[in-house]
Design a protein around this nucleic acid. Structure first.
Length: 431
RNA sequence: GCGGCUAUGGUGUAGAGGCAACACAGGAGCUUGUGGAGCUCUUAUCACGGGUUCGAUUCCCGUUAGCCGCC
């Protein structure tokens, strides 16, 4: 069988950092790399030409959203995700597991997977939790924080899988690890993820452990389902072979607890995945250490993707601790509200001070937006809610991230990672 | 010229003799496996001058402005 997915480490750098290249059926990804998020088979406001011009090499779409609309069979009939959206490059799909959190415990509640509490994570054992509490979490009852319970009817978790109601029309659906993999095979991305559960950062230790152990069992089932497709290669049609060519990444969980993270890395790392995703919730201050706990244990020759991160400063820290690829909604989502990235930090282009500022957003930026438009014009587009605002902002923000990844990669390759990182951090203000 | 009505933030509206409310607009912030959304904070010496009163943005008189009607 022709090998269509491969990962080669070209150079190791400070700490666990490495620069490498991932090869997929749709092209190469030079790592460390940032995947643009295209949840519904579209990087919002950009055409594929713009995605490519901005330097993005891989797009991540979402199984949950595409399953609900237009349905994975439509995408399969179109010839797969890349054909459907006319994106010729590499693609990934998230397994839908994250929506168990974002549409479950976090639904309608402005809860982030990133927690900012200063609570120690060195002492994982906290006060014992009544088993009813764990059952409530599984059944979609979330603790509102004041002791009151909020009923959430969108998601229910059991050993076999997850029942959920569509966020669109309330219709009932069920995902299991097998189903998630089948859907992802139909969607046909180059890299797919095992079905996992991402518990809320506010979930107690007992629940984090339970969810992690369930995620491990689901990982084995995801892997088995994926191998079933691969075994069918010999007698299968060409279309079927496509399915077997996909790389499957397992997901490490464990929340903010060191012992769970290490246990999860050991368990998932021992499974026959092509690479790994690190998922779940983090303490903002401890993203680096949480990542290092895991990457000290995962097999070093396989790629590691940090799901849903992140912030530029977090990305430097994660690369230093062994991460190869990232995805995050921040640059594209924030671009739509006028929050734009610069070397000096993020700015809100709608601020009054930019209204009469005719200089480019960033003097030395090579993106289409900075090369052709002024801060004043951008402020005007956002203030008047013109559609073009999203496009120009997204082009700039994604360019910022691809240049950032290029700089990080160059740092590793040239043994200048530390200098580059220090230089970036010195200039980049977090306000 | 005469009569009537109305004057509250940038706009449109509440309100009550004692902390001036709401919407939008304005100013600022939040956004981490998506959310073209949303949320938080913030912005007013109640047209002007006099009077009554412990106290007036509120009641009274006048001025000014706008609107409506009449000659």
């Amino acid at each position: 069988m022709e090998k269509v997915f491969g990962f080669t480490i070209q150079k190791k750098g400070k700490g666990l950092a490495r620069a490498g290249v991932m090869e997929t059926a749709h092209g190469k990804i030079l790592t460390p790399a940032f995947a643009a998020v295209g949840t519904k088979a579209s990087v919002k406001s950009l055409t594929p030409v713009e995605i490519k011009d901005v330097g993005i090499s891989v797009v991540l779409a979402n199984t949950y959203h595409l399953y609900l609309e237009p349905g994975e069979k439509i995408i399969e009939a179109a010839g797969g995700l890349g054909k459907f959206m006319n994106w010729p490059g590499p693609t990934m799909t998230d397994s839908g597991g994250f929506q168990v959190f974002s549409l479950g415990a976090a639904f309608g509640r402005r809860q982030s997977k990133i927690s900012f509490s200063k609570k120690s994570n060195a002492t994982p054992r906290q006060k014992p939790v009544h088993s009813d509490v764990l059952e409530n979490i599984r059944m979609g009852m979330a603790d509102s924080g004041e002791g009151g319970k909020t009923t959430n009817t969108l998601v229910k978790i059991d050993e076999d899988g997850v029942d959920f109601l569509s966020y669109k029309d309330g219709s009932k659906h069920r995902f299991t690890p097998e189903r998630s993999i089948q859907i992802q095979q139909s969607i046909g991305a180059d890299i797919i993820f095992a079905f996992d559960e991402c518990p809320s950062p506010s979930a107690p230790y007992e629940y984090q452990r339970e969810a992690m152990e369930r995620t491990h069992r689901w990982a084995l089932r995801s892997l088995a389902e994926h191998k079933r497709a691969r075994r069918g290669l010999a007698r299968a049609s060409r279309k079927k072979m496509r399915k077997g060519e996909q790389a499957l990444f397992g997901i490490v969980q464990g929340g903010r607890y060191g012992d769970l993270r290490k246990e999860s890395a050991k368990a998932v790392g021992a499974m026959d995945f092509d690479g790994f995703g690190i998922g779940g919730s983090f303490e903002k201050e401890d993203i680096e250490s949480a990542v290092s706990w895991v990457n000290e244990i995962l097999p070093p020759e396989k790629p590691r993707h940090l799901l849903g991160i992140g912030d530029p400063l977090d990305i430097w820290g994660a690369v230093e601790n062994g991460i190869d690829t990232f995805d995050c909604v921040a640059p594209t989502r924030e671009a739509r509200t006028g929050s734009l990235y610069t070397r000096a930090g993020r700015v809100n282009i709608t601020n009054a001070k930019f209204v009469k500022d005719f200089s480019p957003l960033e003097e030395h930026c090579d993106c289409y937006t900075c090369a052709n438009f002024s801060r004043s014009y951008l402020a005007h587009l956002y203030r008047t809610k013109e559609i073009l605002a999203s496009t120009l902002g997204t082009i700039h923000n994604l360019r910022f991230f691809t240049k950032l990844m290029g700089e990080i990669r160059e740092g590793v390759l040239a043994d200048k990672f530390e200098d580059f990182r220090a230089d970036f951090a010195r200039k980049y203000s977090t306000r």
